[in-house]
Amino acid sequence: MPTDRSDSHLRIVWVYPDLLSTYGDRGNLLILARRAQARGIDVETIPIAYDEPIPRGGDIYLVGGGEDRPQTLAAARMRADGGLTAAVSQGAAVLAVCAGIQLIGEYFHIEDKQIAGAGLLDLRSDRGDSRAVGELVGEVDPRLGLPLLTGFENHGGRCHLGPAANPLAKVLVGVGNDGATEGAWAGKVVGTYLHGPALSRNPALADLVLSWALDVPLSAMPPIDDTWPERLRAERLAAVMPR
């Protein structure tokens, strides 16, 4: 365990909520905190505004989606700050959703400009021919041991993964990165085009991120009552999966 990460409780850092929370991104913070607390783990949630330094000592970092203008501003701030990169090199976990996956890649495009990202995942984003809007279902990389990924996507970008990043899922419904794969992961960093409260329909993904932060296998996470998330998953999957 790195010495400057707190052992007594789990620290979840929400990066720039004032710029990057267009679509209910707060949900991921609330869900991670609740699922940790349900396992008897104390949680500190730390929203970091755009004019504050990103602390190096967090266990989990959340990066949300934003409109073009805030996203550009966030990328510049994040790179100048360097806190997120330092935390990841010390073993912190990262969940990035929607535009967040573009932000933590190598670069992305806003209008005709190429903008440098945080460089945490080996991927590059450009603009697609059309906006991808709708339900997304994916079969998750079997190495991660997760059930189907389900959620809503709404983005104009497309992601191209380099060799150091693994696709998070194979697309069954929707578009994701490019119509074939969705999201990316490497080490303890995961990004998805599912936007907003992506974890509300994917409690197992929430537990995976928690298990990374706690340095335990996913199978070691004690089960908790998931009646309502499971009913939501069942309802959504039944509504959108091809019969």
Binding site: G24, R26, G27, V133, G134, E135, F152, G196
Partner: peptide
Amino acid sequence: GLDTSWLYD
């Protein structure tokens, strides 16, 4: 709107 994400806002 087909998306319910705003419930978390």
